[in-house]
Design a protein around this nucleic acid. Structure first.
Lengths: 236, 236
DNA sequence: TCGCGATTAATGTATAGACAAATCTACCAT
DNA sequence: ATGGTAGATTTGTCTATACATTAATCGCGA
């Protein structure tokens, strides 16, 4: 059996749905008919249809039947590899240039900092990401010391890049990313070696591990030398 | 049975993996032990573990066993609702202002246009997305007439918004989105009623249906009044 | 006609068992 | 030591069956 039967059934319908032969709202035969058609047990058909269901390609209602789902277009998979590997993939040399770091308490007036710190202190750092020695992005990062206690004896955190270091030590389970455009401030422009008020892509990210906040990061990319690419397959 | 057993088993391990209690590489008990532990049949355990497998949380190898997967940090789910609904969600009034449209052959010198057209003509259109009558984004779009034949008798395409219209008529199966920052040209600045060279967020998207190209769209957003938000959770 | 309860058709969950496929382990012959 | 082969273990697939759950529908009575 080079291809499992349930997989064949699944891909049959996937193909018919994606090609448009089966349009949204169309009825899909009931499991009884499908087991007749494929000459197999109901559990096999069920496994195939369950996969299509969790892929969001079909809707199923008891008593009513199975239908091709209406496409919900509102989510796609964004490919956000970490910066070093992304730069290396483009055949460039990656380097991180640390500007500074310090341990400090959160500012009582900043709600977000207080929540991130969660009663502990914050590790604040700033640095430049370089591709072939040319500044690509400016990174400002806050790390909750409570969530990442070994940050104190981390001498290597700025040797690679803070993002990569964190991911290796404290994988996150949830993240929120905000992407916007802004004009570089004088300071940002100086560090990135671009004209003042140049258009930059700003990526802000907050990450959690379970219910604990881990880090906040803000990366300002040189506008014309970076873009994010997202690819989409079928829903979800 | 308000919660199916296989779902309970699945979420048990999901929680233990996401909390870090089970670290990448850790062994998960074999199905025999799990059916003992939960007092159920092997198929039930198998269903739970299959779900975790397809969610990418575990790896399974015959004879070797089941292990917590190493997190692949390089992709997250980007929420890209279509513009009208996104604007309405913010409590603003959405409107589309058409600037112009025409039917034309693809430019022979433009490879991308030729591939998009696929031997037919292109429907080109331009318009403004307004939130509370304030320009939010400028949209330039090319549609393959071959892929969307009913575009000729589409009188309503500019009544709502081209994106929404297309999605209703020709659901896509694949898309690629590119996000970058740029400075508004004089023309863009005039239409968006912002100063020249203001920072803007540029979203370009190509969509396919199967192997046929459907449309190319380029949206230029006013930098400070829009941002994309991507959320990543576990599972999917 | 309008509700309301019973029927029933569909999916959802679970069982127990069988065999296939992969691959790790141990042993055996060279 | 080396290489190959024969188990043994674990997952992968599939069957046949049973009962639970949901909701569309039908029939009945007001």
């Amino acid at each position: 059996m080079r291809q499992p039967l349930h997989e064949r059934i699944r891909s049959d319908f996937e193909a018919r749905i994606l090609s448009g032969e089966l349009a949204p709202g169309d009825r899909i035969p009931i499991e009884q008919d499908l087991m007749q058609h494929y000459g197999c047990a109901r559990m096999t058909v069920n496994k195939a249809l369950s996969a299509l269901l969790s892929a969001g390609l079909i809707d199923r209602r008891k008593r009513a039947g199975t239908f091709v789902a209406r496409p919900r277009m509102h989510s796609m998979v964004l490919d956000v590899p970490d910066l070093p590997s992304q730069i290396r993939e483009r055949g460039q040399v990656y380097a991180y240039f640390p500007i500074g770091h310090r341990l400090r308490p959160p500012a009582p007036s900043r709600d977000d900092e207080m929540r991130l710190a969660g009663g502990g202190d914050l590790f604040e750092l700033e640095g430049l990401h370089l591709a072939d020695d040319i500044p690509l992005a400016l990174e400002y990062r806050l790390i909750s010391v409570l969530a990442v206690p070994d940050i104190g004896d981390a001498t290597d955190i700025e040797a690679i890049s803070p993002g990569s270091w964190l991911l290796k030590h404290v994988p996150w389970t949830e993240a929120e990313t905000r992407i916007s455009a802004l004009e570089a401030t004088a300071e940002e422009a100086r560090l990135l070696r671009i004209p003042q008020r140049s258009a930059c892509l700003c990526v802000e990210r907050r990450t959690w591990r379970g219910s604990d906040r881990i880090t906040y990061v803000r990366q300002v990319f040189v506008g014309n030398s970076y873009d994010l690419v997202a690819r989409f397959g079928a829903t979800r």
